[in-house]
Nucleic acid binder design. Structure first.
Lengths: 105, 105
DNA sequence: TGACCTTATCTCAATATTGCTATATAGCAT
DNA sequence: ATGCTATATAGCAATATTGAGATAAGGTCA
């Protein structure tokens, strides 16, 4: 039934799972994951292949693979929007202040 | 009726909302605005000009103006990260499913 | 009025991302 | 083993974004 192909991401995750701190974050906060990984995980939840996602986004499998690679950081917002749509999701972006904001105008 | 889907971002926010300081800094209403507007509003709250922000991000005022223009959609994630940092904020990105995900996998 | 500050818009070159093909690897099944 | 499927990666052309300078518009203030 279920195919268990081990991706680079699987290898990466298994390796990192050896680290207790990583395990803690992995369980508690998926928010800690990169955009690339979020896309991959959502795609896999939907049972889609890179190929089928590529078709929906009108691009190629290799382009999806690149976007999902753990060390890729060249994402564009427009592409992310397209991908989100193809995955039946809404892309949410927000800026969260990490330090105090001065009251002055 | 339908279950409200709680995203990782929701969990993250709810958890942080327990902190009074975070609540003060975070304004729920901000979520409605576009990325361009969010940048502009946050910059103005900090009393910064496009010029001063440009300097922090090592670019020009015209580039900031372009990024803040309402109909601009060519944002890159890397630029947004830089801008967020310069504005003393964390960039949060999440995919929120808008339809049910099959239980499998 | 003029001087100054802030923002918007234009153009162009430099840089970055994307699309695409080909190819390699890995897992599973026959 | 072979064949099939899914993914990863390299190279290059096409496309898109960015950086920069010039300029214009609007506001404020003396």
């Amino acid at each position: 039934m279920s195919k268990k192909i081990k991706t680079n991401y699987d290898v990466w995750r298994e390796e990192n799972m050896k680290d207790p701190e990583f395990r803690r974050l992995y369980k508690e906060e998926e928010a800690k994951f990169s955009v690339s990984q979020k896309i991959r995980r959502l795609r896999e939840k939907l049972g889609m292949t890179q190929q089928s996602l590529a078709k929906k986004v009108k691009t190629t499998q290799s382009a999806i693979a690149r976007i999902e690679s753990t060390d890729y950081e060249g994402h564009s917002l427009s592409k992310l929007e397209e991908i989100a749509k193809a995955l039946g999701a809404a892309l949410v972006i927000d800026f969260i202040p990490t330090r105090k904001i001065k009251k002055s105008a």
